[in-house]
Design a protein around this nucleic acid. Structure first.
Lengths: 346, 346
DNA sequence: CTGTTAGCGCTTTCAG
DNA sequence: CTGAAAGCGCTAACAG
């Protein structure tokens, strides 16, 4: 996939590998105390006399000692590691989510493993299995796993889902339907009577949710909908959908997500269709407003919040050692940008 | 930072927490063999009679047993975990790198911890310290750490750097200078005589590299350079830099990266400066070509390759238990898009 | 306040 | 081929 690097290698010196870290015993004997005391100096210093702590810490510093987390974990049964699995790190929907999740985990003292399933359920299952052996809990985002596999894994480790609605598993769902409804209403108000929906992956929970919201709202408002499948949620796919979209007779389009919308914009530009003068476009997820111009009219994202919240639920589940039937819905709203305008009446 | 989630909670049932995983002893007694045999069945099945392996595996399956990686790690001293630390997961330069690094690590049987330093060296140092206690090695991308801290950490764990040039530490560098040189030459050819450099973080190795390349090339070609600092590499910063850039008298600009370039484009549009008719813009890293229109003229990215390569070097260092003085340079080239054009002579 | 004593769950010689 | 035994480095009662 990735081209061979045309690289320049300057291979000069060989050095020794990193030194073996000092152990608790070495520090103990160096400081002239027991190993338990050294342990306490690091985990419960309040149990020790201040001088003792200082003595131990000084020895530790000189020996470059720091507690081996693995050994600690084996002993305590806790290691404060969690895993986050996403279908595609590079899809712009996920980085803000990952970032927020990581930040929240960090705040609670957890380190996070990151896994990329590459949109593949088999791979995801392997990843989850691998992680299960070394984390306390995991967050699965837009999981492609079957309900059964999710339940099976949840039996072993605490699991929180994002954008996947499985009963019995704590989950946080971004309800883009609410924003999509607003988007369609917005277009109706602008005078558009026929709207294209440039859809995403058929199997995706999000796509089904959005498609349904659009059709229902259109029916309610007496609008016509032209369905244009884009299959993959990519810029490319959106771009290819442009001619069909124009041909559909619609004067506005709602795209599966911002990536598709942006592609659509590019495609429309190539068809010499001016946006928003001659055609209006609405995206979804608001993941590109910080990188594109003109600002896309889109549905608010909240992916960062979803990530943060998911970790919060996970941490709480770990803390309380209970799993609640919990379904946390984040609603969305329309963010009006510069790609929608009144329908031009010829 | 993140608004409170307006969430709907449906808190219904409480359940038992995930069950405690089975241990090797339970499997051993269930299968009527010793713990050593169970261990071997999983790690060295070739040492056992086929039937014995099958027997053990069957017991394991029924007891839902799988080896505890923590215990295994403590025993063997190896756990095949590495860490990847970046300044900002959400900066579009990093996700492809993270993704490639993760994939490569996975291929070598390593799990990866992800850390986000939030562009902050203190935070980075804490993160690295935390990870150092539980990984075999780390990849630091665009590290904000001082040379001294990097060396100190490298003494403890194998470290590979990306886009940071510290002697003695294996590093992979994306040589954007080569692409930048081509960009400036390209602008010169188009007739531009005064070019603005909208720079990034002062402490960043990449920024220094790009700044220098621009100045040298400009001098060589007899062009003038106007330095406009954007400080943070963000869309916002680029946008704010637009008025200054116009005021500088330049007819073209090279931005620190695509994000800044895209912000600059937005800012220019608001100043009613038409691109590329009245002003040319060049980005760097080629991270937005799949999401924006019109296509930005930019310098090719190779961040995914850098990530993959860095992990490769790390894995190799871990395998061979040696650290080589290694400096791996990936060169770049100019990708001409639609944001550069001939200078309009009034 | 500090030392002693057991393990945590697994791997790995070393014997049979 | 399989079992017994000795830890890996640390924490956590339990005594003093």
């Amino acid at each position: 996939l990735i081209a061979e690097p045309r690289a320049a290698w300057n291979d000069v010196v060989k050095k020794a590998p990193p030194t073996t870290p000092a152990t608790i015993s070495q520090v103990a004997s160096h400081a002239g105390v027991s190993r338990a005391t050294v342990s306490r100096a690091f985990t419960h210093p309040e149990m020790l006399r201040g001088e003792t702590v200082a003595l131990v810490k000084e020895s530790a510093r000189r020996l470059r000692y720091f507690p081996n987390q693995i050994a600690r974990a084996l002993s305590t049964g806790r290691h404060s590691n969690v895993a986050l699995v996403v279908p595609d790190i590079a899809n712009p929907f996920f980085p803000p989510l990952i970032r927020a999740a990581q930040a929240r985990a960090d705040m609670a003292g957890y380190c996070v493993f990151l896994g990329d399933s590459n949109e593949n359920s088999t791979r995801e299952d392997v990843l989850v299995g691998q992680f299960a052996a070394q984390v306390e809990g995991l967050v699965l985002v837009s999981s492609r796993l079957s309900k059964e596999r999710i339940h099976a894994n949840a039996q072993l480790r605490s699991i929180v889902l994002v954008n996947r609605d499985v009963k019995g598993i704590p989950r946080v769902l971004i309800d883009t339907a609410s924003g999509i409804v607003a988007a369609v209403a917005h277009l109706a108000e602008l005078g558009h009577r026929r709207i294209a929906y440039v859809g995403g992956p058929a199997a995706s929970w999000s796509n089904q949710q959005r498609r349904q919201a659009i059709h229902q709202t259109a029916r309610r408002l007496g609008l016509e909908i032209a369905a244009i499948p884009a299959r993959l949620p990519t810029f490319e796919a959106g771009m290819r959908a442009a001619p069909l979209t124009v041909a559909s007779g619609a004067t506005a389009a709602v795209a599966f997500d911002d990536l598709v919308a942006q592609g659509l914009l590019a495609g429309l530009a190539e068809c010499e269709v001016e946006v928003p003068r001659a055609f209006s476009v609405v995206g979804c997820d608001d993941v590109l407003s910080n990188t594109t111009y003109p600002r896309l009219t889109t549905v608010s994202g909240r992916s960062a919040e979803a990530g943060r919240l998911a970790v919060e639920l996970l941490v709480e589940a770990l803390r309380s050692r209970t799993i609640r039937e919990m379904r946390c819905v984040l609603d969305t709203h329309l963010v009006v940008g510069m790609t929608t305008a009144e329908r031009k009446h010829p």
